[in-house]
């Protein structure tokens, strides 16, 4: 192995300066963050202040957030209605997602101890779909197993976790991603992608050479050694 070379701070800074990026490029990154994270009024203000074409209808940001909230508080029925109001195609074209919402609804019945309704709902809505795919069936069985345990702590963790807040978050996250996709938006905030690329790039480059590292909080370059 040749000895590791190093890049001096002055050279690095000169190179930073040469990178092609404009204010309006960065504005769009910021807009993407505001939209995906669901900050509707901030996105509206930004569209005005930065004179930026909004990438989506602002109302869709709000309804997306409403849907997420409904799922997080366990109101699956409300979430389904809102998704269909926004765009009926989202659930029509995505049976797996629709099944997950129905499964979540079943979980919420069981959580509330509405056992008779849970059974009825499972028989009417979920069982026919379980016949469609083995994956749906095993998920249905896993959910029904909740009924066998009187309280969640006694259940095996693979079953008890269905009642955890994380399960709600997971369902909410998948619905959110599907809506974003229907709006031709990315699932992940692009800024997060940028930070990941930064971590990836720095660690790869570090194997080859020594160079100034970046503190992202204040944008300062740190030279080691």
């Amino acid at each position: 192995m040749p000895p590791k070379s190093s890049i001096r701070k002055e050279e690095w800074e000169k190179s930073l300066h040469e990178v092609q990026v404009t204010k309006s490029d960065l504005n769009r990154l910021v807009m993407d963050y505001l939209v995906i994270e669901g900050y509707k009024s901030a996105a509206e203000e930004f569209s005005q202040e930065a004179n930026l074409e909004p990438p989506v209808d602002f109302e869709s940001i709000e309804s997306r957030m409403d849907i997420r909230e409904a799922l997080q508080r366990g109101d699956v029925e409300d979430a389904i209605i809102r998704v269909n109001d926004l765009n009926p195609e989202i659930l029509d074209t995505n049976p797996a997602l629709y099944f997950k919402l129905q499964q979540q609804k079943l979980i919420e019945y069981i959580r509330q101890g509405r056992i008779a309704e849970a059974l009825q709902f499972a028989q009417d809505e979920l069982a026919p779909r379980g016949e469609e795919s083995p994956e749906f069936l095993s998920e249905l069985e896993r959910t029904m197993a909740l009924l066998a345990f009187e309280s969640a702590p006694n259940a095996p963790s693979a079953i008890a976790e269905l009642l955890s807040p994380a399960q709600r978050m997971k369902t909410a996250g998948e619905v959110n991603a599907a809506i974003l996709e229907s709006l031709s938006q990315g699932k992940e905030v692009k800024l997060v992608g940028l930070l990941k690329l930064l971590c990836w790039g720095e660690s790869m480059l570090e194997e080859k050479t020594t160079f100034p590292k970046l503190n992202v909080m204040d944008g300062s370059l740190v030279e080691r050694g």
Partner: peptide, 13 residues
């Protein structure tokens, strides 16, 4: 802004 530096720094890497 730090955001701009993040972009420039990553691109340079």
């Amino acid at each position: 802004p730090a955001l701009e530096t993040v972009y420039r720094h990553t691109s340079t890497c």
